[in-house]
Amino acid sequence: MSAVIEIEGLRKTFHSLRHGRRVAVDGFDLLVEPGQIHGFLGPNGSGKTTTLRALLGLVRADAGRMTVLGARSPEQLPRVSGRVGAIVESPQFFGNFTAHRTLRLLARAGGVPVSRVDEVLTQVGLYDRGHERVKGYSLGMKQRLAVASALLKDPELLILDEPANGLDPAGIREMRDLMRSLAAAGVTVLVSSHILAEIQLICDHVTIISRGRRVAAGRVDEVLAGFDRHEFLVRVAEPARAVELLGAAGLTATAHDDHLTVADVTDPTLVSRTLGEQGLWVGELTPLRPDLESVFLELTGTAGHPGVPRQVDDSVLPDRPTRDGTIDLDAGVGETRGVDA
Protein backbone atom coordinates (compact mmCIF):
# COMPACT_ATOMS: atom_id res chain seq x y z
CA MET A 1 0.00 0.00 0.00
CA SER A 2 1.47 3.39 -0.94
CA ALA A 3 2.29 5.96 1.70
CA VAL A 4 -0.22 8.69 2.51
CA ILE A 5 2.56 11.20 3.12
CA GLU A 6 6.08 10.81 1.90
CA ILE A 7 8.76 13.43 2.37
CA GLU A 8 12.34 12.87 1.28
CA GLY A 9 15.23 15.24 1.79
CA LEU A 10 13.12 18.33 2.42
CA ARG A 11 15.18 21.49 2.72
CA LYS A 12 14.00 24.97 3.46
CA THR A 13 16.07 28.01 4.25
CA PHE A 14 14.61 31.38 5.13
CA HIS A 15 16.46 34.51 4.17
CA SER A 16 15.98 37.83 5.87
CA LEU A 17 17.81 41.11 5.61
CA ARG A 18 17.80 41.51 9.38
CA HIS A 19 18.50 37.98 10.52
CA GLY A 20 20.38 36.59 7.57
CA ARG A 21 19.98 33.00 6.55
CA ARG A 22 18.25 30.45 8.76
CA VAL A 23 17.99 26.78 7.91
CA ALA A 24 14.54 25.68 9.02
CA VAL A 25 14.42 22.18 7.55
CA ASP A 26 17.54 20.35 6.51
CA GLY A 27 17.14 17.09 4.62
CA PHE A 28 14.09 15.93 6.53
CA ASP A 29 12.29 12.65 5.82
CA LEU A 30 8.79 11.61 6.88
CA LEU A 31 6.71 8.60 6.02
CA VAL A 32 3.08 8.23 7.05
CA GLU A 33 1.28 5.02 6.10
CA PRO A 34 -2.49 4.71 5.64
CA GLY A 35 -4.52 4.39 8.82
CA GLN A 36 -1.77 5.62 11.13
CA ILE A 37 -2.16 8.20 13.84
CA HIS A 38 1.28 9.62 13.38
CA GLY A 39 2.79 11.95 15.96
CA PHE A 40 5.13 14.64 14.70
CA LEU A 41 7.27 15.97 17.51
CA GLY A 42 9.98 18.52 17.85
CA PRO A 43 11.07 21.42 20.06
CA ASN A 44 9.98 24.95 19.27
CA GLY A 45 11.60 26.17 16.07
CA SER A 46 12.66 22.68 15.02
CA GLY A 47 10.92 22.90 11.65
CA LYS A 48 7.62 21.11 12.29
CA THR A 49 5.34 23.85 11.05
CA THR A 50 7.63 24.71 8.15
CA THR A 51 7.52 21.05 7.11
CA LEU A 52 3.72 21.00 7.26
CA ARG A 53 3.49 24.30 5.39
CA ALA A 54 5.83 23.02 2.69
CA LEU A 55 3.81 19.81 2.43
CA LEU A 56 0.62 21.82 1.99
CA GLY A 57 2.14 24.16 -0.59
CA LEU A 58 2.22 27.23 1.63
CA VAL A 59 6.00 27.62 1.58
CA ARG A 60 8.30 26.72 -1.28
CA ALA A 61 10.80 23.99 -0.50
CA ASP A 62 14.37 24.53 -1.64
CA ALA A 63 14.88 20.83 -2.23
CA GLY A 64 13.27 17.49 -1.57
CA ARG A 65 10.38 15.41 -2.77
CA MET A 66 6.95 15.39 -1.17
CA THR A 67 3.83 13.43 -1.98
CA VAL A 68 0.40 13.57 -0.40
CA LEU A 69 -2.03 10.76 -1.18
CA GLY A 70 0.17 9.89 -4.12
CA ALA A 71 0.16 13.41 -5.57
CA ARG A 72 3.38 15.41 -5.81
CA SER A 73 3.31 18.48 -3.62
CA PRO A 74 2.86 21.27 -4.41
CA GLU A 75 2.38 20.72 -8.17
CA GLN A 76 -0.39 18.11 -7.97
CA LEU A 77 -1.84 19.21 -4.65
CA PRO A 78 -5.07 20.58 -6.17
CA ARG A 79 -5.83 17.03 -7.34
CA VAL A 80 -6.04 15.71 -3.76
CA SER A 81 -6.79 18.82 -1.69
CA GLY A 82 -10.44 17.82 -1.40
CA ARG A 83 -9.34 14.72 0.50
CA VAL A 84 -6.97 16.49 2.90
CA GLY A 85 -8.11 18.41 5.95
CA ALA A 86 -5.47 20.51 7.63
CA ILE A 87 -4.84 23.11 10.26
CA VAL A 88 -1.45 24.73 10.42
CA GLU A 89 -0.46 26.62 13.55
CA SER A 90 -3.42 28.23 15.34
CA PRO A 91 -5.33 29.51 12.34
CA GLN A 92 -6.90 32.94 12.51
CA PHE A 93 -10.44 33.71 11.52
CA PHE A 94 -12.30 36.94 10.87
CA GLY A 95 -13.50 38.02 14.29
CA ASN A 96 -16.68 39.54 12.96
CA PHE A 97 -17.83 36.38 11.23
CA THR A 98 -19.68 33.69 13.10
CA ALA A 99 -18.26 30.18 13.15
CA HIS A 100 -21.17 29.09 11.02
CA ARG A 101 -20.49 31.73 8.37
CA THR A 102 -16.74 31.02 8.45
CA LEU A 103 -17.32 27.37 7.72
CA ARG A 104 -20.07 28.05 5.21
CA LEU A 105 -17.73 30.26 3.19
CA LEU A 106 -15.04 27.58 3.24
CA ALA A 107 -17.58 24.93 2.28
CA ARG A 108 -18.74 27.05 -0.66
CA ALA A 109 -15.20 27.75 -1.79
CA GLY A 110 -14.33 24.06 -1.62
CA GLY A 111 -17.54 22.75 -3.16
CA VAL A 112 -18.59 20.93 0.03
CA PRO A 113 -22.31 20.68 0.87
CA VAL A 114 -23.22 23.41 3.34
CA SER A 115 -25.10 20.78 5.37
CA ARG A 116 -21.67 19.55 6.56
CA VAL A 117 -21.26 22.76 8.57
CA ASP A 118 -23.71 21.77 11.28
CA GLU A 119 -22.30 18.26 11.36
CA VAL A 120 -18.74 19.36 12.03
CA LEU A 121 -19.80 22.05 14.49
CA THR A 122 -21.59 19.31 16.42
CA GLN A 123 -18.53 17.06 16.11
CA VAL A 124 -16.23 19.62 17.75
CA GLY A 125 -18.80 20.74 20.33
CA LEU A 126 -19.48 24.21 18.89
CA TYR A 127 -22.98 23.69 17.53
CA ASP A 128 -24.69 25.73 20.26
CA ARG A 129 -22.22 28.61 19.87
CA GLY A 130 -21.93 28.40 16.09
CA HIS A 131 -23.87 31.60 15.46
CA GLU A 132 -21.72 33.71 17.76
CA ARG A 133 -18.96 35.91 16.42
CA VAL A 134 -15.54 34.31 16.49
CA LYS A 135 -14.02 37.32 18.24
CA GLY A 136 -15.88 36.29 21.38
CA TYR A 137 -14.41 32.80 21.32
CA SER A 138 -11.75 31.57 23.71
CA LEU A 139 -8.51 30.18 22.31
CA GLY A 140 -9.81 26.66 22.81
CA MET A 141 -13.04 27.44 20.96
CA LYS A 142 -11.08 28.91 18.06
CA GLN A 143 -9.02 25.75 18.03
CA ARG A 144 -12.19 23.68 17.88
CA LEU A 145 -13.35 25.83 14.97
CA ALA A 146 -10.04 25.21 13.23
CA VAL A 147 -10.45 21.48 13.66
CA ALA A 148 -14.02 21.79 12.38
CA SER A 149 -12.72 23.53 9.25
CA ALA A 150 -10.31 20.66 8.69
CA LEU A 151 -13.07 18.08 9.15
CA LEU A 152 -15.47 19.87 6.81
CA LYS A 153 -14.20 18.01 3.75
CA ASP A 154 -14.67 14.62 5.39
CA PRO A 155 -10.97 14.05 4.70
CA GLU A 156 -9.01 10.85 4.17
CA LEU A 157 -5.97 12.57 5.63
CA LEU A 158 -6.08 14.93 8.54
CA ILE A 159 -3.07 17.12 9.31
CA LEU A 160 -3.32 18.83 12.67
CA ASP A 161 -0.68 21.22 13.91
CA GLU A 162 -0.97 21.61 17.67
CA PRO A 163 -4.69 20.79 17.79
CA ALA A 164 -4.73 20.82 21.59
CA ASN A 165 -3.55 24.45 21.83
CA GLY A 166 -5.70 26.25 24.37
CA LEU A 167 -8.00 23.32 25.00
CA ASP A 168 -9.13 22.56 28.52
CA PRO A 169 -8.57 19.04 29.90
CA ALA A 170 -12.00 17.93 28.77
CA GLY A 171 -11.31 19.42 25.35
CA ILE A 172 -8.01 17.54 25.13
CA ARG A 173 -9.78 14.31 25.96
CA GLU A 174 -12.48 15.06 23.38
CA MET A 175 -9.82 15.76 20.78
CA ARG A 176 -8.14 12.46 21.62
CA ASP A 177 -11.43 10.60 21.27
CA LEU A 178 -12.15 12.41 18.02
CA MET A 179 -8.82 11.41 16.55
CA ARG A 180 -9.29 7.83 17.63
CA SER A 181 -12.77 7.66 16.14
CA LEU A 182 -11.51 9.21 12.89
CA ALA A 183 -8.65 6.73 12.75
CA ALA A 184 -11.10 3.90 13.42
CA ALA A 185 -13.12 5.18 10.46
CA GLY A 186 -10.03 4.87 8.26
CA VAL A 187 -8.77 8.46 8.38
CA THR A 188 -5.01 8.83 8.52
CA VAL A 189 -3.98 11.47 11.05
CA LEU A 190 -0.71 13.37 11.24
CA VAL A 191 -0.64 15.36 14.44
CA SER A 192 2.03 17.60 15.84
CA SER A 193 1.91 18.44 19.49
CA HIS A 194 3.97 19.35 22.50
CA ILE A 195 1.74 17.36 24.82
CA LEU A 196 3.86 14.26 24.69
CA ALA A 197 1.72 12.23 27.06
CA GLU A 198 -1.17 12.83 24.67
CA ILE A 199 0.89 11.76 21.69
CA GLN A 200 1.94 8.62 23.52
CA LEU A 201 -1.70 7.88 24.29
CA ILE A 202 -3.05 8.55 20.82
CA CYS A 203 -0.35 7.82 18.30
CA ASP A 204 0.85 4.49 17.00
CA HIS A 205 3.76 5.99 15.06
CA VAL A 206 5.99 8.95 15.71
CA THR A 207 8.62 11.06 13.97
CA ILE A 208 10.83 13.37 15.98
CA ILE A 209 12.54 16.35 14.40
CA SER A 210 15.32 18.50 15.84
CA ARG A 211 16.95 21.47 14.12
CA GLY A 212 15.25 20.54 10.87
CA ARG A 213 16.47 16.95 10.81
CA ARG A 214 14.83 13.69 11.77
CA VAL A 215 16.17 12.15 14.97
CA ALA A 216 13.78 9.26 15.32
CA ALA A 217 10.94 7.63 13.48
CA GLY A 218 8.93 4.48 13.77
CA ARG A 219 6.34 2.77 15.92
CA VAL A 220 6.01 4.49 19.29
CA ASP A 221 6.75 1.28 21.22
CA GLU A 222 9.82 0.60 19.07
CA VAL A 223 11.15 4.10 19.56
CA LEU A 224 10.64 3.77 23.30
CA ALA A 225 12.16 0.30 23.31
CA GLY A 226 15.32 1.75 21.84
CA PHE A 227 15.70 3.78 25.01
CA ASP A 228 14.75 1.04 27.46
CA ARG A 229 17.70 0.64 29.83
CA HIS A 230 15.96 -2.28 31.59
CA GLU A 231 15.96 -0.23 34.73
CA PHE A 232 14.14 -1.14 37.97
CA LEU A 233 13.22 0.85 41.03
CA VAL A 234 13.95 -1.07 44.21
CA ARG A 235 12.86 -0.22 47.75
CA VAL A 236 14.71 -1.92 50.60
CA ALA A 237 15.44 -1.10 54.22
CA GLU A 238 19.17 -0.42 53.67
CA PRO A 239 19.72 1.08 50.19
CA ALA A 240 23.45 1.67 50.63
CA ARG A 241 24.09 -1.97 51.57
CA ALA A 242 21.82 -3.11 48.75
CA VAL A 243 23.91 -1.16 46.20
CA GLU A 244 27.02 -2.95 47.44
CA LEU A 245 25.40 -6.36 47.28
CA LEU A 246 23.96 -5.79 43.81
CA GLY A 247 27.28 -4.42 42.59
CA ALA A 248 29.02 -7.53 43.84
CA ALA A 249 26.49 -9.55 41.85
CA GLY A 250 27.46 -7.67 38.68
CA LEU A 251 24.52 -5.31 38.53
CA THR A 252 24.69 -1.50 38.14
CA ALA A 253 22.80 -0.02 41.08
CA THR A 254 22.50 3.59 42.17
CA ALA A 255 21.31 4.72 45.59
CA HIS A 256 18.75 7.50 45.95
CA ASP A 257 17.12 9.01 49.09
CA ASP A 258 14.65 6.27 49.81
CA HIS A 259 15.23 3.82 47.00
CA LEU A 260 17.72 2.61 44.49
CA THR A 261 17.68 2.03 40.76
CA VAL A 262 19.23 -0.94 39.05
CA ALA A 263 20.06 -0.77 35.36
CA ASP A 264 20.50 -3.43 32.68
CA VAL A 265 18.36 -5.96 34.51
CA THR A 266 17.44 -8.79 32.20
CA ASP A 267 16.08 -11.01 34.98
CA PRO A 268 14.36 -9.12 37.84
CA THR A 269 14.35 -12.20 40.07
CA LEU A 270 18.15 -11.86 40.25
CA VAL A 271 17.66 -8.60 42.18
CA SER A 272 15.22 -10.01 44.74
CA ARG A 273 17.20 -13.25 45.09
CA THR A 274 20.54 -11.46 45.57
CA LEU A 275 19.13 -9.16 48.27
CA GLY A 276 16.92 -11.81 49.88
CA GLU A 277 19.83 -14.22 50.31
CA GLN A 278 21.53 -11.52 52.43
CA GLY A 279 18.44 -10.82 54.52
CA LEU A 280 17.37 -7.66 52.72
CA TRP A 281 13.75 -8.04 51.79
CA VAL A 282 12.57 -6.14 48.72
CA GLY A 283 9.55 -3.92 49.44
CA GLU A 284 9.05 -2.81 45.84
CA LEU A 285 10.49 -3.88 42.50
CA THR A 286 9.09 -1.76 39.67
CA PRO A 287 10.30 -1.64 36.06
CA LEU A 288 11.13 1.91 34.89
CA ARG A 289 9.95 2.18 31.31
CA PRO A 290 10.99 5.20 29.25
CA ASP A 291 8.15 7.49 28.28
CA LEU A 292 7.94 9.64 25.19
CA GLU A 293 8.79 12.78 27.11
CA SER A 294 12.11 11.46 28.40
CA VAL A 295 12.96 10.02 25.00
CA PHE A 296 12.03 13.30 23.31
CA LEU A 297 14.11 15.35 25.71
CA GLU A 298 17.07 13.04 25.31
CA LEU A 299 16.83 12.86 21.53
CA THR A 300 16.44 16.56 21.04
CA GLY A 301 18.82 17.55 23.80
CA THR A 302 16.23 19.89 25.27
CA ALA A 303 16.12 18.59 28.83
CA GLY A 304 18.02 21.64 30.01
CA HIS A 305 19.74 22.16 33.32
CA PRO A 306 18.28 23.63 36.51
CA GLY A 307 18.89 27.38 36.69
CA VAL A 308 20.16 27.64 33.11
CA PRO A 309 17.63 29.14 30.74
CA ARG A 310 17.53 27.16 27.50
CA GLN A 311 17.38 29.05 24.21
CA VAL A 312 15.10 27.75 21.50
CA ASP A 313 18.00 26.83 19.26
CA ASP A 314 19.78 24.94 22.02
CA SER A 315 18.87 21.53 20.75
CA VAL A 316 20.49 18.58 19.11
CA LEU A 317 21.69 18.89 15.55
CA PRO A 318 21.57 15.32 14.35
CA ASP A 319 23.53 13.86 11.48
CA ARG A 320 21.76 13.80 8.18
CA PRO A 321 19.00 11.20 8.36
CA THR A 322 19.54 7.75 7.01
CA ARG A 323 17.26 6.63 4.23
CA ASP A 324 17.30 2.89 4.74
CA GLY A 325 15.62 2.37 8.12
CA THR A 326 12.74 3.93 9.93
CA ILE A 327 14.67 4.48 13.14
CA ASP A 328 17.97 6.24 13.42
CA LEU A 329 18.37 6.46 17.12
CA ASP A 330 22.09 7.14 17.10
CA ALA A 331 21.67 10.25 15.04
CA GLY A 332 24.12 12.68 16.51
CA VAL A 333 22.67 12.79 20.01
CA GLY A 334 24.63 15.16 22.14
CA GLU A 335 25.91 17.33 19.33
CA THR A 336 24.55 20.82 19.53
CA ARG A 337 25.12 23.98 17.62
CA GLY A 338 24.19 27.60 17.77
CA VAL A 339 22.16 29.60 15.30
CA ASP A 340 22.42 28.62 11.64
CA ALA A 341 23.62 31.76 10.08
Binding site: L56, G57, P74, P91, Q92, F93, F94, L106, A109, G110
Partner: peptide, 18 residues
Protein backbone atom coordinates in the same frame (compact mmCIF):
# COMPACT_ATOMS: atom_id res chain seq x y z
CA UNK B 1 -4.68 43.04 3.37
CA UNK B 2 -6.84 41.75 6.20
CA UNK B 3 -7.06 38.36 4.55
CA UNK B 4 -3.30 38.06 4.22
CA UNK B 5 -2.68 39.36 7.69
CA UNK B 6 -5.27 37.26 9.46
CA UNK B 7 -4.42 33.99 7.73
CA UNK B 8 -7.67 33.91 5.79
CA UNK B 9 -5.77 33.38 2.55
CA UNK B 10 -3.87 30.48 4.09
CA UNK B 11 -7.14 28.91 5.21
CA UNK B 12 -8.50 29.29 1.72
CA UNK B 13 -5.37 27.89 0.10
CA UNK B 14 -5.65 24.79 2.25
CA UNK B 15 -8.96 24.30 0.48
CA UNK B 16 -8.03 25.51 -2.97
CA UNK B 17 -4.26 25.21 -3.36
CA UNK B 18 -4.21 27.22 -6.59
Amino acid sequence: GADLNSGGVVNLLLWRPR
